[in-house]
């Protein structure tokens, strides 16, 4: 599977995750979000930014609790919880947010 955007072809896996993670940019994220029916707000971008930062260092998406805590520290304690993340990303912070952030799909019992 693949999609074209601004003259570039992006290969994805069966679930729509980018195959080549280096190809990611904000336009791609915007495109993937639209595909998911999401309207990217600043809050959405905060999550994406954190995921990418974490991935850069650890080569894996962060544990959900690490993500919620980081978001809570950034946007206020009342937003540092799973429910807030699910409100932003109804498909799940681990799977949907990772897809938009250009991270590989988490595998395993998740």
């Amino acid at each position: 599977m693949a999609f074209d955007l601004n003259g570039v072809t992006y290969e994805t896996d069966e679930d729509g995750y980018l195959v080549n993670l280096d190809q990611w940019n904000k336009d791609v994220a915007q495109y993937l979000a639209t595909q998911e029916g999401l309207d990217m707000t600043d809050a959405h971008w905060e999550v994406v930014d954190f995921l990418r930062e974490y991935y850069d260092e650890y080569k894996i998406a962060p544990m959900i609790r690490i993500l919620t805590k980081a978001i809570g520290q950034k946007l206020g304690k009342e937003k540092g919880n799973t429910k807030y993340l699910y409100d932003l990303y109804p498909g799940g912070p681990a799977k949907q947010a990772c897809k938009i952030a250009g991270l590989p799909k988490p595998t395993g019992c998740v």
Partner: peptide, 30 residues
């Protein structure tokens, strides 16, 4: 795919998610 990809990860990295040691360490410290 689901099973076979994961089995590859556990045999290469040590767990199904593919969490590398320094990431695991970070998680435990958290």
């Amino acid at each position: 795919k689901y099973c076979n990809e994961i089995l590859g990860k556990v045999l290469k990295v040590g767990n199904n998610l593919g969490i590398e040691p320094h990431a695991l360490k970070n998680t435990l410290e958290f």
